[in-house]
């Protein structure tokens, strides 16, 4: 896959089409959410409001199932991951646009955010000393393995999403070139499923990593 084209420059920084697409996604999501949530009804919710409440409640319930009592704290980050990755994955279905998640810079940025958020939530919950101690458990000898695990899972997170979306678009392009116009339609449907699955996997893995950080300290505290 080619490098994203630079659309314009801000000083020495070249703004690529991926960033512009991301801005577009942000704009659409922001305006849509503002339009939908400005007139929420308590007693007579409309169809759209009901759907939106169901979506948010389902995401909150998923987080609550993994981390009971922490859903309110984690919902903005995890749910935004799910929503953004789904929209970004599906953007590739629009002609002349490419999925931002099909670029390693984007997925790496998301993975780094997950990496940082794991430590952020862990440190915020237990303090930096208590949180860092879990790298030395059950024995300090395992510290290198813990550090390698942190790095590799972050890389895996970034590469998994990038590889799947990039390969999906590439395969669709190849099939379109080889077989004609209508043959890739089932593949496009597969693209939708794949987009949803990859978004769910990315968000759920991020949630599990955060939960691992919180629960490992929690179990250690209980042991103490």
């Amino acid at each position: 896959m080619n490098a994203p084209a630079v659309v314009f420059y801000i000083g020495p920084f070249g703004i690529t089409s991926v960033v512009v697409t991301t801005w577009g996604i942000m704009l659409v999501l922001g305006v849509s959410c503002w339009l939908v949530t400005r007139n929420l009804s308590l007693l007579k919710p409309g169809r759209l409001q009901t759907m939106l409440e169901g979506l948010v409640a389902a995401m909150e319930a998923s987080i609550e199932a993994v981390l009971p009592g922490q859903a309110k704290q984690l919902l903005p980050f995890i749910a935004t991951l799910w929503i953004y990755i789904v929209i970004a994955n599906l953007t590739g279905l629009i002609p002349q646009l490419h999925s931002p998640t099909g670029h390693l810079s984007v997925t790496t940025g998301l993975a780094v955010l997950v990496f940082l958020s794991v430590h952020w939530f862990g440190i915020r919950s237990y303090g930096i000393r208590q949180y860092c101690k879990h790298y030395l458990s059950p024995t300090p000898l395992l510290l290198p393995f813990h550090l390698i695990s942190e790095v590799t899972r972050t890389i895996a997170l970034a590469v998994r999403l990038f590889g799947n979306i990039m390969s999906l678009e590439l395969v669709a392009l190849l099939v379109l070139l080889v077989a004609g116009l209508l043959v890739p339609v089932p593949l496009l449907m597969l693209h939708i499923v794949e987009a949803l699955v990859q978004a769910y996997i990315f968000g759920m893995l991020a949630l599990i990593y955060v939960a691992g950080a919180l629960q490992s300290k929690q179990s250690k505290g209980n042991d103490l």
Binding site: G14, T16, V18, T22, P100, H103, S105, V106
Partner: peptide
Amino acid sequence: FDWTTFVLE
């Protein structure tokens, strides 16, 4: 890998 895109993302 584009660092500008990475940071902006």
